[in-house]
C-alpha cells in the first residue's frame, strides 16, 4: 500500500518536471519571436527616423516628387504611398469577393473529388514564388493590357493590380475555406429545418458564422499584397509617378528595392524611412482587422 503511494508520488513528480521543462522551452521560443519583432522595430525606427527629420515629416510623407539622384534631390513619397494603397485596394476589390465565392463553393458545394483537386491547385498557387508571378505578368498580362487598352506600354498600375489580385487569391480561398468547414453542422441543419434552401443557409448562416476566419484571410491577403515587391517591380513600370490607372508606377516596396543597391547618404536613409512607413502600414492593417475580428466573434 505504502509502496504504491510513493510510486505514484514519484510518477507525479516526474510528470511535473517534464511539464516544467516543456513550459520553459515554449517560453523561450515565445520570447524569441517577441524579441525579433522588438528588434526589427527598433532597427527600423533608428535607421528610418533621421531622414524624416532632415527632410521634414510633411515634405517626406506628402511630397509628390521623388528625385533622389537629381542635382537638387527631392524626397516626397506620396506617389509610392498612394500606389501601394491603390494597388492593394484594387487587388482586394477583386480577390476578396472572388476568393470568398471560391471558398464557399469548395467548402459547401463542390463534389468531393472536384473540391480536392481545386484545393490542391490552390495550395500550389500559394506556394509559387513571386518572381514566377512576375514573369507570368510580364509575358502574359503586360502585353495583353497594352493591346486591350491600346497603350504604348502595358507595364502600369493596372497590370500590377491584376498580378496582385491573382497572388492574393490563394491565401484568401484556403483560409476562408478552412473557416467555412469549421462551421458546426448544427447551425446549417437548424437553418434548413426552418425552411431555408441550402444556398440561403450557406450565405446567411455559414458565412456569417465563419466571418472571423474570413476576415483573417483578408488580413493575410492585404499583408501579402502591400508587402509584395518582386512581382510588382516586374510589371508596374517602376517609374516614380503619381499613380494613375495606366501610368507606370512604383510601390513602397519597389521604391526601396530598386534603389537600395546603389544608394548613399540621405538617399539611403530615406529608403529606410520608406521601409519604416511600410512597416507602420502593415502594423496598422493588423491592428484594425484584429479589432474587427474580435468584435465579430460571438462568445
Amino acid at each position: 500500500m505504502d509502496g504504491t503511494v510513493t510510486l505514484q508520488k514519484s510518477r507525479l513528480k516526474k510528470q511535473k518536471s517534464v511539464e516544467n521543462i516543456f513550459k520553459t522551452i515554449f517560453l523561450i521560443f515565445g520570447m524569441f519571436s517577441i524579441a525579433f519583432v522588438i528588434f526589427i522595430s527598433i532597427f527600423l525606427i533608428i535607421s528610418g527616423v533621421p531622414a524624416i527629420t532632415k527632410i521634414g515629416f510633411f515634405k517626406f510623407m506628402f511630397g509628390t516628387k521623388w528625385a533622389s539622384t537629381a542635382a537638387k534631390p527631392s524626397f516626397g513619397i506620396l506617389p509610392f504611398i498612394l500606389t501601394s494603397v491603390y494597388g492593394t485596394c484594387g487587388a482586394l476589390l477583386v480577390s476578396v469577393p472572388v476568393g470568398i465565392f471560391c471558398a464557399v463553393y469548395l467548402a459547401k458545394m463542390a463534389p468531393g473529388p472536384v473540391a480536392a483537386a481545386v484545393r490542391e491547385a490552390v495550395d500550389l498557387l500559394a506556394a509559387i514564388p513571386s518572381v514566377v508571378y512576375g514573369l507570368f505578368g510580364m509575358i502574359i498580362i503586360v502585353p495583353s493590357v497594352r493591346k486591350l487598352f491600346n497603350l504604348p506600354d502595358g507595364a502600369n498600375l493596372f497590370s500590377a493590380t491584376v498580378v496582385l489580385a491573382i497572388m492574393v487569391l490563394p491565401s484568401i480561398i484556403s483560409e476562408s475555406e478552412t473557416a467555412l468547414r469549421a462551421v458546426p453542422k448544427e447551425y446549417e441543419e437548424g437553418s434548413l429545418a426552418l425552411g431555408a434552401t441550402y444556398t440561403e443557409t450557406v450565405f446567411k448562416v455559414s458565412l456569417p458564422a465563419a466571418r472571423s476566419g474570413v476576415l483573417t484571410s483578408v488580413i493575410l491577403g492585404t499583408g501579402r499584397a502591400i508587402g509584395e515587391a518582386m512581382a510588382v517591380m516586374m510589371v508596374a513600370g517602376n517609374v516614380a509617378n503619381m499613380p494613375g490607372i495606366f501610368k507606370s508606377v512604383r510601390f513602397l516596396t519597389t521604391a526601396v528595392a530598386s534603389e537600395m543597391s546603389y544608394s548613399s547618404g540621405l538617399q539611403r536613409q530615406a529608403l529606410f524611412s520608406i521601409a519604416l512607413v511600410l512597416f507602420f502600414f502593415i502594423i496598422m492593417i493588423n491592428v484594425v482587422l484584429r479589432k474587427l475580428t474580435s468584435k465579430g466573434e460571438v462568445k
Binding site: E186, Y187, A193, L194
Partner: peptide
C-alpha cells in the same frame, strides 16, 4: 418545424435568431 437534441441557436442576436425564419 424541428427542434434538435442539442440547442443550436445561430451565432447571432436573440432577435435575429427568431427573425431568421420569417425573413427567409
Amino acid at each position: 418545424g424541428m427542434v434538435f437534441q442539442k440547442a443550436n441557436p445561430f451565432p447571432m442576436s436573440i432577435y435575429d435568431n427568431i427573425a431568421y425564419g420569417p425573413r427567409i
